[in-house]
Amino acid sequence: MKTLSIILGVATIVASNLPVLAASVPPPGAASCSGCHSAGAAASVSRLYGRDAGEIVTAMTGFRDGSVPSTVMARIAKGFTDDELRAIAAWLAAQK
């Protein structure tokens, strides 16, 4: 909760200066996801845009600690902190 309010706080400051961009500039790491997880993907690869943020965070933390088996996602999830994953998930959830 504390982290979330910090993230939102930053977003508000940025938003007041740059109204257009704050909505669309993705947090660190988020822009890379669509390379695999977008329109045209195989049925076995999840779409992420518009997906519930909580589900994305749960999946990523599961990949990271190995409780959810994966091929490549564990190797990627290990590169992100909880705060980063939450920010990425929130941004992905807000995309169309």
Partner: peptide, 15 residues
């Protein structure tokens, strides 16, 4: 992983 490779080519070129 071979399926994911194919899928990646489809998504990246679509994007």
């Amino acid at each position: 992983e071979a399926d994911y490779a194919q899928s990646w080519f489809a998504t990246i070129t679509a994007e």
